[in-house]
Design a protein around this nucleic acid. Structure first.
Lengths: 231, 231
DNA sequence: AGGCTCTACTTTGGATCCAAACACAAGATT
DNA sequence: AATCTTGTGTTTGGATCCAAAGTAGAGCCT
């Protein structure tokens, strides 16, 4: 999976994510290969990968089609991430978190505090939050004692809307996003608190709830409906 | 993925599961293709699929290696299945189970009762249990409202030891297996009971615990250690 | 003698070719 | 007139060929 091969997979992933192909549309190997300017071989390899990731689906016996996702699918994908990250957090709490990990988590907590300290949100803060959020989640999942959990989460995250760092969408309503991130920050801190005290059940439930922040919290935080619900 | 392609994937999966290749061993495309009597192309496709399934791992920049699994990985895989099936059960309880599904679950419960009614276990009962157990789990997962959960479980089940129907291993100690299946049957019935009453949390926890039956229950059910623990 | 570099070989990735399977359509038969 | 059958065209799967990247080994230089 050298340059081109990986790039075909990610280029296709991006195209599908952007909705370049209609859901349910059949994808022919030749058509895609011409469109991407490569031969059929890497496209065939990419199709298999994307099928495993769940973005493509076999269309009868002949080729693949773009899988379509309903609102229920989106909700489920978020819940799946929730229970898996919850599992990681619980295991971590039960086995006790190491001094190293404690320190690392503290770093991301601190960065979050600093980011939100000034009381409002700028455009460029969004990337910074994405970054630290990613590190925070990865630190927990990566220390759960086995890569199996992380792998399961990674596979789930291939669904474009399920990933943890797809929280911030709306760079228009920065004040609402600010309140959302404030909540996320508190949840991060509560999770760390629970982890430190070995409170497995609490850590798990907090992590589960935290998964919903991109989905159900928009409605609460004011300013009407807005794009806080399902994508 | 016609005959041969699918067969290469499953043949390789089987070979790896049987331990034909040592964990950590590097797999060359040419070697495997010669061994299986096909060209390199289907092997290349299969490697990508098996990588996504988690059975193979990239070995640096050069090819793939057989992934090795520790006891912790096995435990985690079982826990992952537990939380995912638990999620499915909870969702089902929350949304209320349809009359159709209720009837179907009752069928598998009934078959389980009949299987265990005679008070002991024969060799051929094992397959019958595998069958009904599979149907029972699939009925619940398949009705959770979205294929996303089922997909996540299916991907997890690619790890050979994680699948729900890898419960019964030991056809020597049929009396111990009988007691194990008795417990499994009770757990099935309790899950259905909880589902009927809309008890989401109970259904979830029962399902989670049920996942451990192949792993931790052997020790309890007597006759010393035996192959009830991690493989 | 140890380390660096250059070369040759191994191995993977991409492209193309050929065969087989499947779908669609048109025609023939009952 | 409806259905079955046959034929053609499209599309995927498998094999082989070629190129590129990487590794190991040997030789040379310090």
């Amino acid at each position: 999976m050298s340059n081109s091969d990986k790039s075909v997979v990610s280029r296709l992933r991006k195209l599908i994510g952007e909705g370049a192909y209609r859901p349910g549309e059949r994808l022919g190997e030749v058509a895609v290969s011409e469109q991407l300017g490569v031969s059929r071989t890497p496209v065939r390899l990419a199709f298999r990968t994307l099928e495993q990731e769940g973005l493509l689906q076999r269309a009868g016996k002949r080729g693949f089609m773009v899988r379509e996702f309903t609102d229920a699918d989106v909700l489920c994908a978020v819940e799946v991430r929730g229970v898996l990250e919850g599992l990681a957090a619980r295991r971590l709490a039960e086995q006790g978190l190491s001094a190293d990990l404690d320190a690392e988590l503290q770093v991301w907590i601190q960065k979050g505090r600093e980011l939100l300290a000034k009381g409002y949100l700028e455009e460029r803060d969004i990337d910074a939050w994405s970054e630290l959020n990613h590190h925070f989640h990865e630190a927990i999942v990566g220390s759960a004692g086995s890569p199996v959990i992380g792998d399961a989460i990674a596979r789930n995250n291939h669904l474009p809307f399920a990933a943890a760092d797809s929280i911030v969408i709306d760079s228009e309503a920065l004040d609402r996003e600010y309140r959302k991130l404030q909540l996320a920050q508190i949840q991060h801190e509560l999770v760390v608190q629970a982890l430190r005290h070995g409170e497995g059940a609490r850590a798990e439930m907090l992590m589960r709830e935290h998964a919903f922040i991109g989905l159900r919290y928009g409605e609460l935080l004011g300013l009407g409906a807005g794009p806080g619900g399902a994508r």
